[in-house]
Simulated assay, not measured.
Amino acid sequence: MAEYQSQYPELGFYVKGRHCKFSGGRYVTDDPAEIEVLNSIIDAVRVDEPKENESKSEEPVKATKKPVRKTSAK
């Protein structure tokens, strides 16, 4: 599910000849064609993260060893 916001409450756009528009500055869709068009609109900002990017960014963080402090030899 992709969610977009716009500063314009009823921003309209066309997808394959069909008119779509935001309602209250918000638009939610699952349609890949609509997502492609919305990604190209400057006034539409995606407010959720795409699932493909989430799976890549959720890689486990490897534990690292703390560096061993050496005493200074005087």
Rank of each mutant, 00 (worst) to 15 (best):
M1P: 08
A2R: 05
E3C: 00
Y4M: 03
Q5P: 07
S6K: 00
S6V: 07
S6P: 02
Q7F: 04
Q7A: 08
Q7C: 01
Q7T: 01
Q7W: 03
Q7G: 03
Y8N: 00
Y8T: 07
Y8W: 06
Y8V: 03
E10T: 11
L11K: 02
G12A: 12
G12Q: 13
G12M: 11
F13Y: 08
Y14C: 13
Y14K: 10
Y14I: 13
V15E: 08
K16A: 14
K16E: 15
H19E: 12
K21T: 08
F22C: 00
F22W: 00
S23Q: 09
S23L: 09
G24T: 06
G24P: 14
G24D: 05
G25K: 02
R26E: 05
R26H: 10
Y27P: 12
Y27R: 00
V28L: 05
V28F: 02
V28C: 06
V28K: 00
T29E: 04
D30T: 10
P32Q: 09
P32E: 03
A33N: 15
E34G: 09
I35D: 11
I35G: 10
I35E: 15
I35W: 05
E36S: 10
V37A: 06
L38S: 09
L38I: 07
L38C: 08
L38E: 08
N39Q: 14
N39W: 01
N39G: 10
S40Y: 05
S40C: 06
S40D: 11
I41F: 07
I41M: 13
I41N: 04
I41L: 14
I42L: 07
D43H: 08
A44Q: 04
A44I: 03
V47W: 00
V47G: 00
V47F: 00
D48R: 07
D48L: 04
E49I: 07
E49A: 09
E49S: 07
P50H: 08
P50S: 06
P50T: 02
K51H: 08
K51L: 04
K51M: 09
E52N: 04
E52L: 03
N53H: 09
E54M: 02
E54D: 01
K56A: 01
K56R: 10
S57D: 06
E58L: 05
E59D: 06
E59Y: 02
P60M: 05
P60H: 04
P60Y: 05
P60R: 01
V61C: 00
K62A: 07
K62C: 00
A63Q: 12
T64G: 10
T64P: 06
K65G: 02
K65F: 13
K66G: 02
K66N: 11
P67H: 14
P67N: 14
P67L: 13
P67S: 12
R69E: 15
K70W: 14
K70V: 13
K70L: 12
T71H: 08
T71N: 10
T71M: 14
T71G: 10
S72M: 11
S72V: 14
K74Y: 15
K74Q: 11
K74N: 15
